[in-house]
Design a protein around this nucleic acid. Structure first.
Lengths: 192, 192
DNA sequence: TCGATTGTCTAGCAGTGCTAGGATCGCATC
DNA sequence: GATGCGATCCTAGCACTGCTAGACAATCGA
């Protein structure tokens, strides 16, 4: 029995290794550099090993996305818990979100830009993704305003953050005004 | 002389053919299906012909993006010109933007999601892109509010629209509440 | 120690973007 | 109208991609 357990543990270890290696490689050289050959070489296994853990590259991206969603949710909760007052909380939320996207561009891409084969806004949405949205909702429902559905408000706020994150990173928006845009966003959208 | 002119005209025609064919193919089957082989077969030329017009696939995507930006700017101007009153104008602007993105997903991807090798927010930004932003600015500067930089306000509003467009299309946001989100966006962001 | 099973690798497939080199066409000249 | 020349285009092929079949070896239970 213990042999099987050890094997399972080793398999799980290797799966984690694949995901973290893919993530590292993507952050270092971009997702284009994350080929099955590069990846398999880095983990010091042959390519087919990857396919014994994941259906294909898409699923590896999905795994990185889930890892990222978990981390992001934790970061958002930590930031909002440390802030005092509704306005400070929402500002912290927005800054943390954009900061996460800026610091982990490859992970953010895996979550929202690339096809990781993940379901969204549906029954079978993976738990980390639901939880990420929940982390946003927890802080934002307090500032949605009367008569406004908190979920709808959160969706809008999230979309604005997502737009800022992606357009800034793609060079579509000048990065130096980021803070002023966040302030304006919170001042206008949130009802304090 | 007239022979050279004819040749130039034919070249320009073929270049347009490449761009519109790439666009059609992308809208029909997605950008993944726009391979140099597929594309060259559809225009009934060999692959190297593509490279006598464009540096590579990236530049073809960029050409589609520029075409899209021109159309979008025109659509935005037409919609806002037909609307009466500041609120109606901004609502029309937002609806038209999201409608364009929904109706031309491949073109929208070329503009903002894919790498078309285009410069943004810089000196050498192509005219159609600048003009697209200008079309947004024209209607939005009137509702930016006192003491708020119109450009900054436009960037934020645009980011929100972009977020709504991309998240909705990726299945991250339920599509049925689109109008309510637009109303909320305009009600909160715009100062009427 | 042996047989079976599990696990891993080598080799290869079809498809990708892109390009070198040769063939062919149409033009200006005689 | 024939001819030499340049521009134009295509065939063939490169190095790469994600992915997989089948051979091989290591490991386990008996």
């Amino acid at each position: 029995m213990s042999v099987q357990e050890r094997k399972q543990r080793e398999r799980a270890d290797r799966e984690r290794l694949i995901v973290t290696t893919a993530r590292e490689l993507a952050e270092q050289q971009g997702w284009d550099a994350v080929t099955t050959r590069q990846l398999s070489e880095r983990i010091e296994y042959s390519q087919p090993v990857l396919y014994s853990h994941f259906r294909g590259k898409r699923e590896i991206i999905g795994a990185v996305a889930l890892q990222g969603a978990t981390e992001m949710a934790a970061a958002l909760r930590a930031a909002t818990a440390a802030a005092h007052g509704p306005r400070a909380r929402v500002i912290a939320l927005a800054r943390t979100y954009l900061d996460f996207a800026a610091r982990n561009p490859a992970v953010y891409d895996a979550m929202f830009q690339l096809d990781g084969g993940l379901a969204f806004a549906a029954e079978d949405t993976p738990e980390p993704l639901k939880d990420g949205f929940a982390a946003l909702l927890e802080s934002l429902e307090q500032v949605a305003g009367d008569g406004v559905h908190p979920g709808l408000f959160t969706e809008l706020f999230w979309a604005a953050l997502h737009g800022l994150a992606t357009l800034t990173r793609a060079g579509r928006l000048p990065p130096q005004d980021a803070d002023r845009r966040v302030e304006l966003l919170v001042n206008r959208l949130a009802i304090l």
